[in-house]
Design a protein around this nucleic acid. Structure first.
Lengths: 195, 195
DNA sequence: GTAGAATGAACGGCGGTTCAGTCAACGATC
DNA sequence: GATCGTTGACTGAACCGCCGTTCATTCTAC
């Protein structure tokens, strides 16, 4: 086990392959070919096929949450923080569509099959959003009776759905363009009197 | 091929089995056992395992869209229509959690694998929501520059995320209780001044 | 007796995993 | 510097269990 970034190469290959065919329709040998190595080599670095997916998921989600945390750390205004999160979320999907496709699709399966493994990483992202919302409530910028948990899920769900449509669709527009309207609608609402 | 509701029994059994284990981790023989028939019998009514899922999906989504259409047909106020859709969405998930789990999880795979097969049914639901929003804009009840497509995806995504959390979680609360806050946040927004 | 539905054991191929063999790098010895 | 031995990563053909699918046979209703 010399090569220290061989696991990374395998994960990167797996992202491309899983994005193309889905996890269950991908062969371990497909991942190997994509990585330019033999099928058996994968088993020097991962115990099972499942472990590739779990590792991939954990690693990328952890990176992602850290990135978002950093991006909003220097910002004082909670509303602006939300705008940044949305913008960053879409930017990331746009720049890494293959990774996005895997995370989007397997996320739910993940909830089911890798409960312990992935729940932590996902809920960390929810926590980031929820913390900002709570902050906004305390600062009086958001309704003080706002149900934070519900609002958190709504924002995540909204972003996730826009992302899914874009990823699985023809991608004939820039997802980033949706960031501003999504943030605005979430923050201000759709009522004519709610401007 | 006498028994006219045998296919229905198979689909109902499949819903329970797929909900429990996921599509790819379910055996055809599991579905058969759950339905109280032999494995071979399934192939008198369905050509392949895939066809069970596709049929299930089409049938339930079509039913669902028809139900929602009916429920809002008698209502004039677009805002109230949205409230009804949200309430109905959550009520349906709550009453049919197994079905919900299958649709939630396989929906995305479905987008990928059964493009032609499922895209139509899903987009019909999006159309129902989009039509209501457009109606609201025309009636002056919603912002006139509202990006309807984005808002549609946001509402669907928000409902879907609440539903997913509830379905895959411990279900220690009534999902229906979230209907009012979700509708209110979507309609009025989260800004303190947006009430 | 017959038609056609239902059965479930058996088939076949697919694919995750293994492992005996290959190869490359490196140190030791001359 | 050439030769050899050793180590351990790497290979990929083969293995083997799994499961979707089939079909010869049995059952049932009329």
């Amino acid at each position: 086990m010399r090569d220290p970034d061989k696991p990374q190469q395998i994960i990167d290959a797996a992202i491309r392959v899983f994005a193309r065919n889905g996890y269950y329709n991908s062969r371990v040998s497909d991942v190997a070919r994509e990585a330019g190595i033999a099928a058996g080599t994968i088993y020097l670095y991962f115990k099972t096929k499942d472990e590739i997916l779990v590792t991939l998921f954990r690693e990328k989600m952890t990176e992602w949450v850290a990135l978002v945390r950093d991006a909003i750390a220097g910002e004082a205004d909670p509303l602006e923080k939300i705008r940044r999160i949305v913008a960053l979320h879409f930017k990331m999907i746009e720049e890494h569509p293959a990774l996005a496709e895997v995370l989007q699709v397997e996320l739910r399966q993940g909830h089911k099959f890798f409960r312990g493994a992935s729940a932590q990483e996902v809920s960390a992202y929810f926590d980031v959003i929820a913390d900002v919302l709570r902050e906004g409530v305390l600062a009086g910028r958001l309704r003080k009776e706002l149900p934070v948990k519900v609002a958190t899920k709504m924002l995540f769900g909204a972003m996730d759905q826009l992302a899914t449509s874009w990823v699985l669709g023809s991608r004939g527009y820039r997802l980033s363009e949706a960031a501003e309207p999504v943030a605005t609608i979430f923050l201000k609402g759709v009522c004519a009197d709610g401007v």
